[in-house]
Design a protein around this nucleic acid. Structure first.
Length: 553
RNA sequence: UGGCCUAUAGUAUAAUGGUAGUACGACAGAUUUUGGUUCUGUUUGUCUUGGUUCGAAUCCAGGUAGGCCAACCA
C-alpha cells in the first residue's frame, strides 16, 4: 500500500545482518562527550541510532564518552540527557565510559601480557617525531622492547600515581611503518592527575578514545557502532584491539556528518560564541543547538522530520537551511494557534463606526485543524492598530492591501475603505482614516463585495503589549565553519528586538512552550524569559512570502 | 611524494547491470477572509576518458576534483 521508502546504506547492512541471523536484535549507542551542548549534527546521529533500533528491534544506550576529565562537566551531561529526551527518544541504559575504567585497565594488562603493549617514556614531542609522516615511515621508540614484567610494573606504578603528567604513556605495539598513521603504536593510556566528574580522584591514568570507545561498545555488545567519516581510519585499530582482546566483536560504520548552511556545528566554535558572549548562551535561539532550537520554537517532530529527509550517506554535504525552515513550518502550520499581533503599528480610525462602541468578532484558532480548532472572541472597535506596511500611499502594481480609495478585509471583521490619511510635519503617515461597511461582517456578509486583500489588526483600547525578537541567520556566509575567523562573518542583523508590539488579548496569557502563528507574520513562541508582566516572543520562522518575491520583480 | 573515503538537477537523497526518480528550491497557474495553507504543471542531473556487456549512474582501469589521517582530543 504505502510506498516502501528506500533504505540508507546502514539500514541495508542491518537488514542483511538480521536476515543472515548474525544478530537476533541490534544494539546501538549514542556516545556524546559531555564537553558541550548537543546540536543539529548530533540530532542526526541520535535519530539514526535510536531510529534504527525502533525500526528493527533492539535498543540504544546513551553512553557518555567521558575519558578526558579536563574538558568534561556534569552540566553538559544534564543538558545532553534533557535534549535527547526532548527529541523523543528513550535510552535503554544511561552509561559512562568511566563505568568501565576497571575493565579497561584489565584489558590493558592483558595486552601487555600478550606483548602487544608497552610503557613508553618518550615525551609527547619525541613520540610525534618518531611517528614519521604520512609519506615517511616512523621509527621505533627506544622503550619499545621492555619486558612484560617491566611493563607490568611500570603500568601499575603509573596507575598508582608515581609519575607526573606526561611522563609515561602506554602504547600498543603494532607497526611504526604502517601506512595508517593510527596504527603506528597508538597511545592507549596517558597520565592526568585530574579530577573526573564521576570517578573523582580514583584514577590518574585515563584511556584514550581508541582504547575506550570500541571496548565500551564491546562490553555493551553494541552490534552497530555508528560514527562519522573522520573515524574511518580508526576502524582498523578498532578491529585490531577487539581481535587481540578477544572480546565481543562490535562493528563500526561511518556516515558523513551533516552540515547545514549558514550555521555552525563545531563544539569548539559554539563554545567560543558562548564564551565571548557573541550569543546569549548555548540556547541562543539563533544557534542550531538543540536547546537553542527548542527555545526558538522548533518542535522535536520538525527536527526528526528534517533528519529523516536529509538522509544518511557518505559524501560531503551542505544541506540548505531552507529545508529546516520548511520542516518547522510544515509542523507548526498544523498545530500553531492563529493570533493577531501588529509589529509595526499605525493607527486606523473608522470614521463611521459609532464612537465608543465595541463588539466581539469570532476568529478560528487554526484553519488547518479539523474543526478549525474552535474559535475565540476578539474585541473590535473604531480605532485599530494595523501594520504600517499594509498601507501604500502610492500603490504598487498588483497591490491589494490598503491605499487611498482601496478596500480591504479586516480579518474576521469588516471590509473597510480607505478614505484619507494623515501625515505629520516630516511627512510620516500617522493615521489612516477609513469607513467600514456594516453589512460586511465576517460570518454574515451580505454586502456582496469581494476584496482581494485581508489584513490583521488589534483594537487600540484592548491591545496588550509584548516584546518580540526577530531572528535571521547568524552568519552572513553559507559556510562560516570554513572561514579562518568565522566570528567576523556574524550577521549583524541576526537579532532584531521589537520593544513594543500590540497583541490581541488572547495572547496575554501565552506561556513558554506554546506555539502560535501571528497571522501573516510568522510562527512565534514565548521565550523562556517571558512572564505575564513582560511578554517576550521569539519568532521561530517567517511565513513564506510570495508578495515579497513579487514586489522585487 | 603514502594510505583511506567520496563524486547523480541549485541543495539533499534514490535507482543494487534493464524507463535516471523523490523532496526542498525556482518558475507558471488554480483555490483562498493569512500574498499563509492546499492543488496542478514546468524547469534543471549521472565528474572525465577508456574498457567489459545485447545493455553501465551502477562493474573494471586510468585521470580529475573534494575530504580525512602526522593531540598524551573525541
Amino acid at each position: 500500500m504505502s510506498e516502501e521508502k528506500s533504505l540508507n546504506f546502514i539500514e541495508e547492512i542491518v537488514e542483511e545482518d538480521l536476515k543472515n541471523n548474525k544478530y537476533s536484535r541490534i544494539i546501538t549507542r549514542f556516545p556524546p562527550e559531555p564537553n558541550g551542548y548537543l546540536h543539529l549534527g548530533h540530532a542526526s546521529s541520535i535519530c539514526l541510532n535510536f531510529g534504527l533500533t525502533e525500526k528493527y528491534g533492539g535498543y540504544t544506550n546513551l553512553r557518555f564518552d567521558d575519558t578526558n576529565p579536563v574538558t568534561e562537566e556534569t552540566e553538559y551531561v544534564e543538558s545532553i540527557k534533557a535534549d535527547v529526551a526532548w527529541l523523543g527518544y528513550k535510552w535503554e541504559n544511561e552509561l559512562y565510559a568511566s563505568d568501565y575504567f576497571d575493565t579497561l585497565y584489565e584489558y590493558a594488562v592483558k595486552l601487555i601480557k600478550k606483548e602487544l603493549a608497552y610503557v613508553d617514556d618518550s615525551t609527547s614531542e619525541e613520540i610525534a617525531t618518531l611517528k614519521g609522516t604520512p609519506t615517511e615511515p616512523g621509527k621505533n621508540s627506544p622503550y619499545r622492547d621492555r619486558s612484560v614484567e617491566e611493563n607490568l610494573d611500570l603500568f601499575d606504578r603509573m596507575k598508582n600515581g608515581e609519575f607526573a603528567d606526561g611522563a609515561k604513556t602506554l602504547r600498543a605495539k603494532i607497526d611504526m611503518a604502517h601506512p595508517n598513521m593510527l596504527m603506528r603504536d597508538p597511545v592507549l593510556y596517558r597520565i592526568k592527575h585530574a579530577h573526573h566528574h564521576r570517578t573523582g580522584d580514583k584514577w590518574c591514568i585515563y584511556p584514550m578514545y581508541d582504547f575506550a570507545h570500541g571496548q565500551s561498545d564491546s562490553i555493551e555488545e553494541v552490534t552497530h557502532s555508528i560514527c562519522t567519516l573522520e573515524f574511518v581510519p580508526h576502524r582498523e585499530l578498532y578491529d585490531w584491539l577487539i581481535e587481540r582482546l578477544e572480546i565481543f566483536p562490535s562493528r563500526q560504520y561511518e556516515f558523513a556528518r551533516r552540515n547545514v548552511s549558514y550555521s555552525i556545528t563545531s563544539k569548539r566554535k559554539l563554545m567560543q560564541l558562548v564564551n565571548e558572549k557573541i550569543v546569549d548562551g548555548w540556547d541562543d535561539p539563533r544557534l542550531t543547538t538543540i536547546s537553542g532550537m527548542r527555545r526558538r520554537g522548533y518542535t522535536p517532530e520538525s527536527i526528526r522530520d528534517f533528519c529523516d529527509r536529509i538522509g544518511v550517506a557518505k559524501r560531503e554535504n551542505v544541506v540548505d537551511m531552507g529545508l529546516l525552515e520548511f520542516c518547522v513550518r510544515e509542523d507548526l502550520n498544523k498545530i500553531a494557534l492563529r493570533r493577531m499581533a501588529v509589529l509595526d503599528p499605525i493607527r486606523l480610525v473608522i470614521t463611521n463606526y459609532p464612537a465608543g462602541q465595541t463588539e466581539e468578532v469570532l476568529s478560528e484558532n487554526n484553519p488547518e485543524a479539523e474543526d478549525n480548532g474552535g474559535t475565540r472572541p476578539i474585541p473590535f472597535s473604531g480605532e485599530l492598530w494595523i501594520e504600517r506596511e499594509d498601507f501604500m500611499e502610492v500603490p504598487a502594481k498588483k497591490w491589494f492591501r490598503l491605499a487611498p480609495g482601496a478596500m480591504v478585509r479586516l480579518k474576521s471583521a469588516y471590509i473597510v475603505k480607505c478614505e484619507d490619511f494623515v501625515k505629520d510635519d516630516k511627512g510620516n503617515i500617522t493615521e489612516i482614516r477609513c469607513t467600514y461597511i456594516p453589512e460586511s461582517k465576517s460570518g454574515n456578509d451580505t454586502s456582496g463585495i469581494h476584496v482581494k486583500g485581508t489584513i490583521h489588526w488589534v483594537s487600540v483600547q484592548h491591545a496588550a503589549e509584548a516584546e518580540v525578537k526577530l531572528y535571521d541567520r547568524l552568519f552572513s556566509v553559507e559556510n562560516p565553519g570554513e572561514e579562518e575567523d568565522f566570528t567576523s562573518y556574524i550577521n549583524k542583523n541576526s537579532l532584531q528586538v521589537v520593544n513594543k508590539v500590540y497583541i490581541e488579548p488572547a495572547l496575554a496569557t501565552a506561556k513558554p512552550g506554546e506555539k502560535f502563528q501571528f497571522i501573516r507574520k510568522g510562527y512565534f513562541t514565548p521565550d523562556k524569559t517571558s512572564t505575564p508582566e513582560k511578554l517576550v516572543f521569539n519568532r521561530t520562522a517567517t511565513l513564506r512570502d510570495n508578495w515579497a518575491k513579487e514586489s522585487k520583480k
